[in-house]
Design a protein around this nucleic acid. Structure first.
Lengths: 345, 345
DNA sequence: CCCAAGTGCTTAACCGGATAAGTGACCCGA
DNA sequence: TCGGGTCACTTATCCGGTTAAGCACTTGGG
């Protein structure tokens, strides 16, 4: 149980003052190169690591960013998306020697309260807002608070904070045109929560493309992203007299559940039904047949978001451009696999 | 952009000294009840939240615990286990107003380095060690460091720190006896990483039970828990001349992948093959047929671990019992579903 | 030769809390 | 009436860093 080393210890060992040690360690002028080298050597030898609280108190920065996730404990694990996102975020943060603070909340009110507390406590220097909604109270809330934040999703019109997002419209067109080319005319879509921004964007894009092509029907059912609802909606869809020949799911979990229901009903995939999933996670390759899906690099996306947040935190408060710019990532690419094929006659 | 309120602000507003405010807010003697009430009222009105860094610096506690996960960014999302665990941990921590710091690392060396840094920085008051191995360098490392830690897994003989664990032997017997009762005599097992403690425990338990029952064969293949390896091993197993009539998987992801391979080979489940999965996540109910699996309450498990860690952090350093006790949780329960049935003749 | 500027370091204040020690005012009992 | 004890608060110091200000000492230009 070694004792923690402070700059006072180093100062004593080097025969200089605390101030000189601080200057030397932070690469600031005020000490000669010879002294600096000596201090650095002693610090390294003693295994010095600055006390985070002391530094935070001095420079008013926590060297940490926060994420508050609004999910139920039972369903949070099933979607690979978040862990992949967090993993990407974390990679960038730790490269910049920032920490990641995670909190799971139940309601928006709780989430806002968490942001307020983090801000007041100075526990984090900024936050990442996930699950951006069409009208999202959190955006103004954190902006009013003056808490640096980046929206993981967009684009957001009139935003007071940066957003990092993928174009969702293009992949929607890609999917529909692909299915159309395969001969599908009756298509169903099991969408996510309607209050989420990307759901709304996809809704519009699908509707527009469906109108351009001469599809017979494109019916959309909104769900809560869980396997249960995905299965339930699929069961209803496949039992109806006018069964679709293809179903598009807004996430991978519902697509897997839908595939299960198709098996349950004895349908051959892709001969009798084609299935497409958003968010290509390893989950899409576990099933048989493997799921045709829209591939995005989620860890890279997380890294992007974290980079923008770090820039924002480091930026001068005056630079408004830095606060409202938004980054558009490469749109998702369609990865055709075994779950899609020509429409039945 | 409101300004943060400090105890000096409250002191000025109440017409008392900083010290009196501190006593009042912390419920310590030293102020009259009338003054205390007045100070509390003013603090509440001004929306006071103590600066975390300042308090940490004074009391030498970070009010946070850390988790370092050793996983690749690409596969970290697929296993629901971790997110569920974290969610349970988080619930307990935030109830005790502790924060959770998460870091993802690549190697053991990095992980140890993270613990050392966290300790030196005083960024966390304690850590949770996941994926406990049969001979785990981390246990001694954190103990030597004097960093409070709880092992998420066990039991660990001669442990210098508390462990929270489930009995894994009993469920192993349950599974084998259940499959035996269904008439299965040729059983295969796709196990996890052999270096992990619970894999070793299960290895032993299966071997013992297999010896008691008069099973024809129980072959075990070790894997890395990924769907790829699960699929690959399953493909080999099912293609062999002496095909098992039942396969037990050490996690849900491999079981789902195995189910996919069985479909791919045209096998009827459960008529021709029975499948059992460990760790009943929502994933097990997405497939068709739904997977028979071993149900544990992972969020509750996480909560338990966090509680033990909080106790440990709060405990007097002298109390050795508190540092080495271990908590055994309710063993996993077998939840039979559609993926298991009588053995074929 | 002397003053100004620069170098290299020390000193001390500060961040925002916690807390030991100090200080009156008051009460009580001998 | 006076010493001792308690109460209610203030003062001052500390935690471990950062940083403005101060201070010797060197150097160079006029």
């Amino acid at each position: 149980m070694t004792r923690r080393v402070t700059i006072a210890d180093i100062a004593a060992a080097a025969g200089v003052s605390k101030g000189a040690v601080s200057y030397a360690l932070n690469g600031r002028p005020g000490v000669s190169e010879a002294t600096r080298a000596k201090i650095l050597a002693i610090a390294a030898e003693m295994g010095f690591v600055p006390n985070r609280a002391a530094r935070s108190l001095s420079v008013s920065s926590a060297q940490a960013v926060g994420i508050a996730l609004r999910r139920s404990p039972r369903t949070i694990g099933i979607e690979p998306y978040f862990m992949e996102l967090i993993s990407g975020i974390e990679a960038t943060l730790s490269a910049g020697s920032f920490g990641l603070t995670l909190q799971i909340v139940g309601t928006v009110e709780e989430e806002l309260e968490v942001y307020r507390r983090w801000w007041a406590e100075r526990r984090v220097d900024g936050v990442l807002l996930c699950d951006v909604g069409t009208s999202d109270r959190r955006l103004d809330f954190v902006a009013d608070l003056g808490l640096p934040a980046v929206a993981v999703g967009g684009p957001i019109e009139g935003a007071r904070l940066p957003a990092v997002w993928h174009d969702d419209a293009e992949p929607c067109r890609d999917i529909l045109e692909y299915l159309y080319a395969l001969g599908h005319r009756r298509i169903a879509r099991v969408a996510g929560l309607p209050r989420l921004l990307h759901t709304a964007i996809r809704d519009t894009a699908y509707a527009e493309t469906a109108a351009e092509l001469d599809l017979e029907t494109l019916t959309t059912f909104h769900s809560d992203y869980t396997g249960e609802q995905g299965a339930q909606i699929t069961r209803r869809l496949l039992s109806s007299s006018k069964r679709p020949s293809a179903i598009i799911y807004d996430n991978d979990v519902m697509a897997v559940a839908g595939l299960g229901v198709a098996h349950e009903l004895g349908l051959e995939i892709p001969e009798q039904l084609s299935v497409v999933a958003w968010d290509d996670s390893p989950l899409c390759r576990l099933t048989h047949p493997a799921l045709t899906s829209l591939t995005r690099d989620i860890p890279a996306y997380g890294s992007n978001c974290a980079e923008v947040l770090l820039t924002l935190i480091g930026a001068e408060p005056a630079s408004v451009e830095a606060r409202t710019f938004s980054v558009q990532c490469r749109p998702a690419q369609l990865s055709p696999r075994g779950s899609t094929g020509p429409a039945p006659d």
